[in-house]
């Protein structure tokens, strides 16, 4: 995608709030830093909900989402319009979440409490209870934590956020075939973990 150089002239009479992402980015790159706010307001709920989908912890959402937008602010000057802003911000969000997951993993490794053990205990406890629609979500999310991140992420992007295979491939920076295979593998693993609880 080429840099839309004339957008700012074409859209001169349109209020900022109605301008396209690309127009706002061009304005930002031309020094109008205040338009960044319109991009944030357009995508803040999307980003917050991706972070929430991944961590399932509302306490982490604010900090991570803010870090995402700070990264976007710092990198926007060099945005090359090679992908849509939508998938670019998605990619930054997912990468930020991956970093956080890695940090959490290191913390768990050095902590005395075993994460694996805790999760197993939770799932075992769930196996003794009956499920309705309300707590089904909790069971699935708890079980998803057991999946390796490379299989978990495509499921979140597909089933919770509703991205297409192409968009997931762009966000995760891999081939569409890889997305399909990871989705399939991840779902099978999830099914195997859920089978003793749900059936």
């Amino acid at each position: 995608m080429a840099k839309p150089a004339v957008i700012n002239i074409i859209n001169a009479n349109i209020p900022n709030v109605q301008k396209s992402d690309d127009s706002l980015i061009v304005l930002f790159q031309n020094g109008e830093r205040e338009v960044f706010r319109f991009l944030v307001e357009r995508y803040q709920e999307k980003v917050r909900n991706i972070v929430f989908s991944i961590f399932n912890d509302p306490d982490l959402v604010d900090d991570i989402s803010q870090e995402v937008f700070i990264k976007v602010f710092q990198a926007l000057q060099n945005f090359r319009f090679e992908s849509s802003f939508y998938t670019w911000i998605y990619r930054i969000t997912v990468n930020k979440c991956r970093d956080e997951l890695r940090k959490k993993k290191v913390k768990r490794f050095f902590s005395f409490q075993s994460f694996e053990k805790t999760t197993n205990l939770k799932i075992e406890n769930m196996a003794t209870t009956t499920f309705d629609d309300e707590n089904m979500m909790g069971v699935i999310q708890e079980t998803m934590k057991k999946l390796p991140e490379k299989f978990r992420m495509p499921i979140i992007l597909k089933d919770i956020d509703g991205l297409s295979y192409d968009e997931i491939a762009e966000v995760l920076d891999c081939e569409v075939g890889t997305v399909k295979s990871r989705l399939s593998r991840g779902r099978t693993m999830l099914k195997e973990l859920l089978m003793p609880i749900l059936v």
Partner: peptide, 23 residues
């Protein structure tokens, strides 16, 4: 059926309430 239930359940995951103070 298990996979379908899982996918449908995940797609119904509730969204966070809007944060008016985010900006």
């Amino acid at each position: 059926e298990i996979l379908r239930t899982t996918k449908q359940t995940l797609s119904r995951k509730e969204k966070l309430p809007k944060d008016d103070w985010f900006w």
